[in-house]
């Protein structure tokens, strides 16, 4: 395979990864890492570096649209970033202390459980119309968005911000320790615990994952894990795909997004389990 074939084929695969990532709020890493290591036989260190670039590209590409359309809740996102960035920073210190293989198995179980929980609530649609959460009220985190699939404005209230913060801290920690799974914990934290509508959850997760990834991107860059010839087609392809994915989110229902999310979550869970067992 010549460099041209490599760049063109990887860019095309990245378009798909970007669209999927933008839709479910997980970033493109879920697709990019296995594609690079299995399909192209690229070293895992460089694949993880490319994955960080793909997460930032998905986030910035999709969030530009989500924030403008108010699908993403900017205040909730920026508030929860306090916990994700702190988690990512503490993860950078803990990376040598904690046994990675055990963590992979543990989080495979966590994600498997949250896939099941998401599947069980796939028909739940009605958002909360009131909240007695003091933090959410004080910072006016509640919001509303126009849903083109339902052709109406949907208002929602946010609850359980403390639980949300805790889960976000863990999400940041995990993404720094394992390189994957940041969005996989963010979406259930918002959709399940804080009761944001599913579409708002994936859009807001998209908005946030770029910041979480940026917190560790500097380390990856300095360690020489970001190879330009891999990063270039990934970045360009993902950005194109994320723009497409952001448009698709408008037209599909929350129930559909939940199903797609569950499928992707199960895939990540198995990927983690494999890493934990095979090492």
């Amino acid at each position: 395979m010549t460099p041209l074939d490599f760049v063109v084929s990887l860019a095309l695969i990245s378009v798909v990864a970007g669209a999927l990532g933008a839709l479910v709020g997980l970033g493109g890493g879920v697709v990019i890492v296995p594609v690079l290591t299995i399909l192209y036989g690229i070293n895992i260190r460089l694949a993880i570096g490319a994955s960080i670039v793909s997460v930032i590209a998905t986030s910035s590409g999709a969030a530009a649209a989500y924030v403008r359309e108010r699908m993403a809740n900017l205040r909730v996102g920026m508030f929860l970033e306090v916990a994700t960035t702190t988690g990512a920073l503490s993860g950078a210190f803990l990376t040598t202390v904690l046994p990675a293989r055990l963590l992979f198995v543990f989080f495979a179980a966590v994600l498997g459980y949250s896939a099941l929980a998401t599947f069980k609530r796939r028909h739940r649609a009605a958002p909360l119309s009131a909240s007695n959460d003091r933090i959410a009220n004080a910072l006016s985190l509640h919001g509303s968005y126009y849903d083109p699939a339902e052709r109406r404005e949907i208002a929602y209230h946010v609850v359980r911000t403390r639980l949300g913060l805790t889960l976000m801290y863990v999400a940041g920690l995990v993404s720094a320790l394992l390189g994957i799974g940041s969005g996989a914990l963010k979406v259930p934290a918002m959709d399940g615990a804080m009761r944001l509508p599913m579409k708002v959850s994936t859009a807001t997760s998209n908005f946030m994952i770029g910041v979480t990834a940026a917190a560790s991107a500097g380390v990856y860059f300095m360690r020489g894990q970001i190879d330009p010839i891999i990063a270039a087609p990934v970045a360009v392809g993902i950005l194109a795909g994320a723009t497409i994915g952001a448009r698709v989110l408008n037209s599909v229902t929350s129930a559909t997004i939940r199903i797609v999310f569950v499928v992707v979550l199960v895939a990540i869970s198995l990927e983690m389990l494999q890493k934990g067992i095979a090492g």
Binding site: V53, A57, S60, G210, V211, A213, A214, F221, P228, I229
Partner: peptide, 20 residues
């Protein structure tokens, strides 16, 4: 060209920081 690609990637990495 390699260096120019890296500059582009660094701009991409700094975008979320800039938006914060």
């Amino acid at each position: 060209g390699q260096g120019i690609v890296v500059v582009g990637v660094v701009i991409l990495i700094l975008t979320p920081v800039l938006r914060v």
